[in-house]
Design a protein around this nucleic acid. Structure first.
Length: 509
RNA sequence: GGUCGAUUCGUCUAACGGUUAGGACGAGAGAUUCUCAAUCUCUAAAUAGGAGUUCGAUUCUCCUAUCGACUACCA
């Protein structure tokens, strides 16, 4: 645990489905930490559960990280000095380590069947007790602890089912340190003899594979979800049993992400229930069910990351908008909060609106163009960018751009009844006709020159600014809303302005 | 049930034992404007409860309550 050790962190998801936003946040914090310390960020796939493996999940994870702008230095995709990075491809290394633990007396073979253990659990339950596979019972069961070496070998050779279990010490206070939670002590007697190596699929369990790989990959810091806190003593003891305590990584357990309403941690179903995504990308499960994603809902990855970064971490300043580089510079593991954070869809939208305001007009135009084309409107990138600049501050998502700009390209086909009732009065209509005549005097309509001139003209003729402008607005847009009416008239041009006034006068006569 | 962890406005959070407990989202009100947004200003809104330690606890300790995680040959 020397201070000079190179920082190497890993994100180690299990490919059992889409990557939940809680997982994305874990990956993000690891990434920020690595970058801040000039270290390495590694993506390792922990696919040691052959039962729950979901095809496509790994590809999803990789794509999600890419969309978020989280760049991996080593991993299943690009390889690296410690390849392979998929645990199923590292199968061969784990058994050796498990056996090493047996030889050193820290683990043992157990020959219980799933059925016999099941029966034991039921038996205890009937007595109102909870069965724990630990120091109290291990000597009464079929294990290498009481069987002779020859008999153990014979049983294995015979094909009996076996697992390797960790021999949890009895009544020892395990002292641990967590970068976020501080010092923690747990008595080992409350822990059980966890399975390290499974017979079912000849693969290690998470605990073994995780410790072995973190050691082999020279991981310096383990930053993971709080759900791992209960297994931290086991992991400490494993490092000790292997004799790796001098290079044991430091641990940081992140608080959980909670549901926006009600109780419990955020789950996949919450998205469906409350109408917001819990996954970064759209996901189609093997059973055909689907779940929406932030990307598809129109979130900017920067906004998504910004929102996620602040959910459980705070720099202590009042800054809220952070670029990835700013996050890297400001991040600190000590400032991660200890309690679970409730996810807020409203705040997520607010972040997106902030990024919308900052977005480049040209880039937004690229998103708008196809939407317009779908409506049969073809225009240039420049025109679209100009339209976007007029309205982007009132949009939250790129999809809002279409309804906000559509009327700038096509004349209204109908007029909002409420607005008409309010403003389309005989006097206003008469004034509108005069205004049209006034417009005709200009070579072209501009916000810079026409607007002040018309204002003065309205004053001189003792007309009502509010009444006339809204009447004009109805004629041009069909509704009484939107950005400055002179900006719009300038955008559509003098001819089109006069044409729309004329059309409205006829339609609403 | 057991073990561990957590607890500041409705939500996300700030406050190296000393502040009128700050900011943001959301809510309400107002300003501005040709309208709708945006923007700006203002308002309401919190230290879970109880004991201690201390001159002084949001902050430290203990108890209670509540919430959460874990308690698989899942990760």
């Amino acid at each position: 645990m020397s201070e000079t050790r190179r920082v190497r962190v890993r994100f180690a998801p299990s490919p059992t489905g889409a990557l939940h936003i809680g997982g994305v946040r874990t990956a993000l914090y690891n990434y920020l930490f690595a970058r801040q310390h000039g270290g390495d960020f590694i993506l390792r796939i922990e696919d040691t559960d052959s039962q729950r493996f979901v095809p496509g999940a790994e590809a999803y994870i990789i794509e999600a990280l890419k969309w978020c702008g989280i760049v991996t230095d080593e991993g299943v995709e690009q390889g690296g000095p410690h390849a392979p990075y998929r645990q199923s491809e590292r199968k061969a290394i784990y058994l050796k380590y498990a056996q090493q633990l047996v030889e050193s007396g820290n683990a043992y073979y157990a020959f219980d069947t799933a059925e016999s253990l099941d029966a034991l659990r039921k038996e205890y339950e009937a007595k109102g007790q909870t069965f724990a596979y630990n120091y109290a019972v291990r000597n009464t069961l079929e294990t290498s602890l009481r069987l002779s070496k020859d008999e153990v070998a014979a049983r294995i050779a015979r094909g009996d089912v076996w697992v390797i279990r960790f021999k949890m010490p009895e009544n020892e206070n395990v002292e641990m340190d967590d970068l976020i939670r501080g010092h923690i002590t747990i008595n080992s007697s409350t822990l059980d003899d966890k399975v390290l190596y499974k017979s079912a699929d000849q693969l290690p369990t998470y605990h073994l594979a995780n410790i072995v790989d973190d050691h082999l990959m020279e991981i310096s810091h383990v930053i993971r979800g709080e759900e791992w806190l209960p297994s931290l003593p086991l992991h400490y003891l494993l490092y000790r049993a292997f004799g790796w305590t001098d290079t044991q990584p430091q641990f940081a357990h992140l608080p959980l992400l909670l549901k926006p309403q009600g109780q419990g941690k955020l789950s996949k179903r919450d998205g469906d229930k409350f109408g917001f995504p819990v996954f970064p990308l759209f996901w189609t499960a093997p059973d055909g069910s689907t779940a929406m994603g932030y990307r598809e809902e129109g979130y900017f990855p920067q906004a998504f990351i910004n929102m996620l970064a602040l959910l459980g971490w705070n720099p202590g300043t009042e800054q809220e908008i952070f670029s990835m580089q700013e996050l890297i510079d400001a991040f600190s593991i000590e400032k991660v909060s200890k309690s679970g954070a409730r996810f807020s869809p409203d705040k997520a939208k607010w972040f997106n609106a902030q990024y919308m305001k900052m977005a480049d007009d040209g880039e937004l135009a690229e998103k708008l163009l196809p939407m317009l084309a779908e409506k049969g409107i073809n225009t240039t990138r420049e025109r679209a960018a100009k339209a976007v600049s007029l309205i982007k501050e009132r949009a939250t998502f790129p999809k809002d751009l279409l309804p906000l700009t559509e009327y700038m390209f096509v004349a209204p086909s109908s007029y909002d009844e409420k607005s008409v009732q309010k403003f389309w009065k005989p006097e206003n209509v008469e004034n509108l006709k005069k205004l049209a005549a006034k417009f005709a005097e200009f070579d072209r309509i501009t916000a810079a020159e026409t607007e002040p001139a018309v204002h003065q003209w309205i004053l001189d003729n003792q007309m009502s600014m509010g009444q006339l402008m809204n009447t004009l607005r109805i004629a041009i847009l069909g509704v009484s809303q939107g950005p400055s009416i002179f900006d719009i008239c300038e955008f559509i041009g003098k001819d089109e302005t006069l044409r729309r006034i004329d059309a409205a006068l006829k339609a609403l006569a």
